[in-house]
Amino acid sequence: MTLDTLLDRAVVPGYTKLGYAIRSRTWPKNDPAPDSLTGKTAVVTGARTGLGKATAAGLARIGATVHLAVRNAEKAAPALADLQREVPDATFVLDECDISDLDSVRAYAATITSPVHALIHNAGVMPPKRTESAQGHELTLATHVLGPLLLTDLLRDRLTTGRVILVASGGMYTQPLPKDPEYQDAPYKPATAYARTKRIQVALTPLLAADLTPTFVACMHPGWSETPGLTDSLPGFTQLTRRLLRTPEEGADTTIWLSATNPRPPTGKFWHDRRSRPTHYFNLTQESPEQRDSLWRHCRTAAGIPD
């Protein structure tokens, strides 16, 4: 067993800044190259804080024009100003899109007319109680699965040679595919709802990749990174692990790498720290191809994507 694999299986050291520090020593120093995305467009959802903001800065540093897709443009104005100071030669565009609201997604997709090189589905939520989206879907499902599927489908003609990356979570390893994706039949648990929808993202990634060929599709998890979302949703965990948490920049590294590295990695895989990873560590979380196909059809129908 390699040190990298040992770190991954041990979870705690691999997901923390220690795992990043050890693995990053082996990465080529010029990958991605400083001009990798010059002249190309990237869209990052949930770009106001944390991983999304760090991803936007990282993509801009290698030349991309970065669209910050946020729920509230007024609240995101300070983040835009921060990014402009951080990467002064870059071009940032502030866009308003509530990824959980399918009508907002449709309206936003209609405004994007040029080719998109990188579409980063980073937006995330963990409401303390079961909450519904504008269309009546459970909010974590709408934010992490339905909205991203719809936006990707609406932009498929602009993504032909591009890359789609879904930001998941290592917490998905604890959950199987849910039989009740809308979380209607059991007492609601925020962390479970979050992990279940991240499991859905991982399970559907190969199907999305096949549907979008030749577009590249990947899912990744960033490890444990100190972000406002983590602090707000899991304050006890954040306090306990603060000295071990990665910076947002470390957490965003693999997203940026997947967006720009050459040659392009294989599509349809799950990644962490620039390497593809197993999608299951426990037999109890395994799903069948029939279960994946059924959930794929369910989510596409719920998102309003035609067959």
Results as ranks from 00 to 15, higher is better:
H221N: 00
L284D: 15
P127S: 12
D273E: 13
D89P: 03
L245K: 05
A109R: 06
R274Q: 11
D95A: 02
K198Y: 10
D4K: 09
T45I: 08
S294Q: 14
H121G: 13
P306E: 01
T213N: 02
G236H: 12
A303C: 00
G170E: 10
A210R: 15
K129R: 14
A195K: 09
V11E: 03
P34F: 07
Y20F: 15
T215F: 01
S294G: 05
L150K: 05
L146H: 07
R71G: 13
N122W: 11
G52S: 08
D185Q: 14
I112L: 15
A134F: 07
A57Y: 08
T140I: 01
Q175D: 08
Y188T: 02
P178H: 02
V217C: 05
G162N: 00
F282V: 06
P187T: 09
A210W: 00
C219N: 15
A252N: 08
F92W: 01
A57L: 11
L146A: 04
H117F: 04
I22V: 15
R163W: 05
L83G: 07
L234H: 01
L6C: 10
L212I: 01
P78A: 04
P32L: 02
G39N: 08
N122A: 11
T113I: 12
P187N: 12
T267W: 06
S233N: 14
D95F: 08
D307T: 07
S104G: 05
S104N: 12
D153E: 09
K29L: 14
